[in-house]
């Protein structure tokens, strides 16, 4: 069976939009309508500073699911209502308790809810996690690159918490079309020096005059752009499993990754 034919009738299990976020978030689950309402309120009140993904304010990454100044939902509600004196976080007394609960639902699920843009909400097939684990460490070759709570390479994301961070549809996309939405922090870069030597690696940083890579030997290496004949982003090494694995196998891998919640 070819993957392109993977379609709704084949679904073994429909993914629901209810995810529990990482860490403390597990004290609650949030309904899709809470999250949806929270998304709208976030866009109206918070997006300008905290950004589409919640990670734009240094030291206050809302998408991390952990907050320096609050742990319980009630503490978060109080924090957003009263603000943080002396910072741009002003009090928001106009937000009702219900509004604040929705915002918290949105914040707590931000790793999986797709942020302001929202997720591709399409249903995807979710198979057998045990078979998925076998594939991951066996024939599918995933573990050659990705660790799960250790192992794997420094160049690639450790997937130990991926199930708390991505929706099933995003996990399927990551395997079928890896170049479609490469997350910031996982982008690959290539430089060619004036002698024609090519180096590739994970882009850690760059500025007008220099590039900082984790090269493919997993060593930190920097370059001055003046010594380079070319420098550019390149497609990442993540291979697509389209045409390689069957739809059932993909569904099994999705199921395995959903089970990875970092505990």
């Amino acid at each position: 069976m070819r993957l392109q034919s993977l379609s709704k009738p084949l679904l073994l299990l429909a993914a629901t939009a209810i995810f529990s976020g990482a860490g403390h978030a597990q004290e609650h689950s949030y309904t899709p309508s809470d999250i949806e309402a929270g998304r709208g309120l976030y866009q109206a009140n918070c997006l300008g500073c905290h950004g589409n993904t919640g990670s734009e304010v240094e030291g206050a990454n809302l998408a991390s699911g952990r907050f320096r100044r609050a742990s319980s939902d009630e503490e978060l509600i109080a924090l957003v209502r009263t603000g943080i004196p002396g910072t741009l976080m002003i009090p928001r007394p106009q937000l009702s308790y219900g509004d604040l609960r929705s915002i918290v639902a949105f914040l707590r699920t931000m790793q999986t809810n797709g942020g302001v843009a929202g997720n591709d909400e399409r249903d995807v097939a979710i198979g057998n996690p045990g078979r998925g684990e076998e594939l991951f460490f066996g024939k599918a070759g995933c573990s050659e690159c990705h660790g799960v709570g250790g192992g794997g390479s420094r160049l690639y994301a450790d997937l130990a918490s991926i199930g708390g961070q991505r929706s099933p549809a995003a996990l399927e996309d990551a395997m079928l079309d890896p170049q479609k939405d490469v997350r910031i922090g996982q982008r690959f870069y290539q430089v060619t020096d004036n002698n024609g030597t090519v180096t590739q690696g994970l882009l850690l940083n760059q500025d007008t005059h220099s590039v900082q890579l984790l090269n493919t030997d997993e060593k930190l290496q920097s370059f001055l752009k003046q010594d380079l004949s070319e420098f550019k982003f390149i497609p990442t090494p993540m291979p697509s499993v389209l045409d390689v694995l069957s739809a059932t196998e993909v569904a099994d891998l999705v199921a395995y990754m959903i089970s990875l919640k970092g505990e």
Binding site: G48, C49, G51, E56, V57, E58, L88, I184, G185, R187, L203, L204, N205, Q206, D207
Partner: peptide
């Protein structure tokens, strides 16, 4: 983003 003063640029 308008306000971000991040120490790294991976954009």
């Amino acid at each position: 983003p308008a306000l971000s003063v991040r120490p790294v640029n991976q954009r």
